[in-house]
């Protein structure tokens, strides 16, 4: 408990009005905690960490943490993050987005950030729904699930985020949940440390806009659902019957240089050539 108090003092903004904007039982606050703990574990200086957030309940996280924080436009967090990283590669840049933010309106930016492997960590808070605008379907809403814009059940299929970002070329792809907090902390720390583009998908319940309409009786029940249905990739692979199960852990680990490093190397080679010729 003392340790948590210390982290709160160290990493949350005192001049910001609390409590959080999030609904009771919302998983977003837990991801916020995970973010703070992973940065703390890595021993990063607060001045060197930049949180670039999109628009949505998830994007509101940025205002509470005492880093450099930029709350951008809906879907475009990764573009601003890319500019910051290219402009100053020594900064640790973390983009915090919702599922609608990252995969629907920002889907194009996501695959291109992965393809060019810009040295940014993408933290996506996936609650399968547009929380902030009141419960419309997103590109991760499961087929058959209900929302205000698919009252008869979602007809479209959901993105497989892991396969999508793997195919796009990301250096790292992982998934965690707000029930499996220790693991989530570790996944995030690993993603932040790996060069290139790394994506962490954090499954987080939104009882208000998703759970209520999809047969969950309470937020607690949604946490129980995460507990019972998610298991580590290693164990998941050994399962014979995988229905209703979701793997968590790290799915992709690639050894690549971030774009900012490749850019710097190119410039160095150019300078050396010029120097040699003179």
């Amino acid at each position: 408990m003392a340790e948590i108090t210390q982290l709160i003092h160290q990493y949350l903004r005192h001049n910001k009005k609390f409590p959080l904007v999030f609904c009771p039982g919302c998983g977003h606050g837990i991801v916020l905690g995970s973010l703070v703990r992973s940065v703390h574990a890595l021993g990063l200086a607060k001045d060197d960490v930049v949180i670039v957030a999109g628009i949505g309940c998830s994007g509101r996280i940025a205002a509470y943490v005492d880093f450099n924080t930029v709350h951008t436009t809906h879907g475009r967090a990764l573009t601003v993050a890319t500019g910051i990283k290219m402009a100053n590669p020594k900064l640790t840049v973390i983009a915090v987005m919702g599922d609608g933010d990252a995969f629907s309106i920002g889907g194009n930016h996501l695959i291109h950030a992965a393809r060019r492997n810009i040295g940014v960590t993408a933290l996506v808070l996936n609650n399968f729904i547009y929380g902030m605008t009141g419960g419309q379907c997103s590109s991760t809403t499961p087929e058959g699930a209900y929302s205000h814009t698919c009252p008869q059940g979602q007809l479209e299929s959901a993105f497989d985020i892991v396969e999508l970002t793997r195919a796009a070329g990301a250096a790292g792809v992982s998934r965690g949940t707000v029930y499996h907090v220790k693991e989530l902390d570790a996944l995030m720390a690993e993603a932040i440390s790996r060069p290139g583009f790394n994506l962490v998908e954090a499954l987080t319940p939104c009882f208000t806009q998703y759970g209520r309409g999809n047969g969950f009786k309470s937020a607690v029940e949604m946490f129980k659902w995460l507990k019972s249905s998610c298991l580590s990739v290693e164990r998941y692979e050994k399962l014979e019957d995988r229905t209703g199960k979701l793997p968590i852990g790290t799915f992709v680990r690639r050894d690549v240089d971030g774009l900012e490093t490749r850019w710097a190397n190119m410039r160095q080679a150019l300078a050396a050539k010029k120097g040699g010729a003179a």
């Binding site: 670039v52 930029v70 951008t72 436009t73 475009r76 990764l78 573009t79 601003v80 993050a81 890319t82 500019g83 910051i84 990283k85 290219m86 402009a87 100053n88 900064l91 194009n108 930016h109 291109h112 774009l259």
Partner: peptide, 20 residues
């Protein structure tokens, strides 16, 4: 940097400007 579209281009320019 060549971005994927003009929205992204503006985003990157904004980010770079914020970084000084």
């Amino acid at each position: 940097i060549q971005m994927e579209d003009e929205i992204a281009s503006m985003g990157a320019v904004i980010g770079a400007s914020l970084a000084g």
